[in-house]
Simulated assay, not measured.
Amino acid sequence: MDVTYTNEPLDRTARTYVAGHRGLVGSAILRRLEADGFTDLVTRTSSELDLRDRDAVRRFFAETKPRSVFLAAAKVGGIMANDTYPVDFLSENLRIQVNVMDAALEQGVERVLFLGSSCIYPKFAEQPIREDSLMTGHLEPTNDAYAVAKIAGIMQVQSVRKQYGLPWISAMPTNLYGPGDNFSRTGSHVLPALIRRFDEAARDGASSVTNWGTGSPRREFLHVDDMADACLYLMDHYDGPQQVNVGTGEDITIKKLSELVARIVGYEGELEWDTSKPDGTPRKLLDVSTLRDAGWSPKISLEQGITDTVAWYRENVDDLRE
């Protein structure tokens, strides 16, 4: 792999734009940067700046002139949402990425971190999935439109590096969870969906809970605060064209995950499985050796992370979208 490790950290006094600061990842990145002493952070809500609006994005960059950008803005969702609205996931993510990166290039932004997703890799990629597995096989059909958009983002970063020599980079996180996650009934990913389902079942005294699929697929989960820490670490220390996997290097079956969530929330009923529903990719574990070799590893265990997320969910449940 063509990799360069650098010792030129971001300037903590330079203007830094966090795109998507209200989302799961963006809000964690903002917290991390604030904690690390960044003094000129720029954010905009979607009502203040629609990143799908090319002219508005160009004006914003011309006015603010950030020196670095964390591109965490995206349209995201679970299996059902991705499978039902592929046009939305493809079109909106392409527009967000192209608009932000084109405007950043136009203003000569020195450093950009583009955030993708592990769904960019082939459905049946060899496990654990290495960065060079990209585009070597067919994608998971339930979220291939979203994956193609993210692959295009990686290519745009690589193209900017090749044509203009700017040290822009890409990071591909595994499944993320934590404070600020989407717990909605129709748009959430597996872990927040399980937390909501089991917490409601525990409060309602339900005798059983039915989950989708067989419970056999294996998934890797990373706390979003660890992800934010990795993003800053990469911006400070990494310079290379290839996307970098960010994860724990460990996975768990959905069945075992369900049992763990049930125990943490205090649900004592039966767990049942609707095998007529899709499982999705059988296994998706990232090879994180590139990031580990660069000197970074996660700090938050899955049990501790879920415990903290359950506490956050219960404190904020009345304000969360349905």
Rank of each mutant, 00 (worst) to 15 (best):
N7A: 14
S301C: 01
W296D: 07
S289Q: 09
I300N: 00
M172S: 15
V288I: 15
N99K: 04
L139G: 03
R161Y: 07
I151T: 08
S159H: 11
R111K: 09
L24V: 04
R32G: 05
V224M: 00
M227S: 10
S46K: 07
G215P: 03
G240V: 11
Y267I: 03
D40T: 03
D308C: 02
D318W: 08
M235Q: 06
R54L: 06
G213L: 04
L30H: 03
N82A: 15
K299M: 10
V3R: 13
Y233E: 01
A62C: 01
L260D: 02
F89M: 04
L134K: 09
L232D: 02
D199A: 13
G20D: 07
G249W: 02
L113I: 12
K123C: 15
T174W: 10
F114G: 13
P167R: 09
L113S: 08
L90C: 08
T142L: 15
S68Q: 11
P173G: 07
V209A: 07
S184T: 15
A171E: 00
A28C: 04
S216T: 15
H189Q: 15
N82D: 07
P217E: 05
E63R: 14
D239N: 14
G180C: 04
K123S: 14
A193S: 11
K299H: 11
W273D: 02
R95L: 10
K277E: 14
L191F: 02
K75W: 03
D229T: 14
V244D: 04
A206W: 08
K277M: 15
I154R: 10
